[in-house]
Computed example of a mutant assay.
Amino acid sequence: MITITAVITAAPGSEGVMRDALLKVADHVAANEPETVGFFVSQDLADPCRFTTYERFADEAAMHRHNGSAAVAAFFAVAEPILAGKVVLVTAAEISAKGA
């Protein structure tokens, strides 16, 4: 399993726009990406401008399809102007997971 963890911080006052943009990606993934095994979006309790995504892909090809999708491109078109700093990305091989 390939994973991506992203930490995304919106400029103050833009957190609602960022939240909506992330949820649009999540909706797209649910409807169109069966090989994206999980796509989780979280909003920080202490700092509502900070979001984390945790993305699980069946393989690298699925990750590349997701990252190259129109939904991800549309997200970055909305997100880039309202980012407060760089997006922190960690791409990894999952070594353990608890099943739902």
Results as ranks from 00 to 15, higher is better:
71 A>D: 13
64 H>E: 15
44 D>S: 13
53 T>I: 02
39 F>K: 05
18 M>L: 12
37 V>A: 10
45 L>N: 12
61 A>C: 02
66 H>K: 02
57 F>V: 02
73 A>R: 15
48 P>Y: 12
71 A>K: 11
34 P>W: 03
24 K>A: 14
42 S>P: 04
28 H>G: 07
63 M>R: 09
27 D>C: 14
58 A>W: 05
57 F>G: 03
36 T>Y: 07
68 G>V: 11
31 A>Q: 09
43 Q>Y: 09
60 E>W: 00
26 A>T: 13
29 V>N: 04
64 H>N: 13
57 F>K: 09
59 D>W: 00
21 A>W: 11
66 H>Y: 03
23 L>G: 07
51 F>T: 09
59 D>M: 07
47 D>K: 15
37 V>K: 10
47 D>W: 12
54 Y>Q: 13
54 Y>A: 06
18 M>Q: 04
72 V>F: 02
51 F>Q: 01
53 T>W: 03
38 G>Q: 12
26 A>L: 05
29 V>P: 01
27 D>Q: 13
70 A>G: 08
57 F>M: 05
72 V>M: 12
43 Q>P: 05
60 E>Y: 05
70 A>S: 15
31 A>M: 06
55 E>F: 04
44 D>H: 08
67 N>C: 09
65 R>C: 00
30 A>L: 02
47 D>V: 14
26 A>G: 08
71 A>L: 04
27 D>L: 03
56 R>N: 01
72 V>S: 01
27 D>E: 15
54 Y>N: 03
30 A>F: 08
46 A>Y: 11
29 V>A: 03
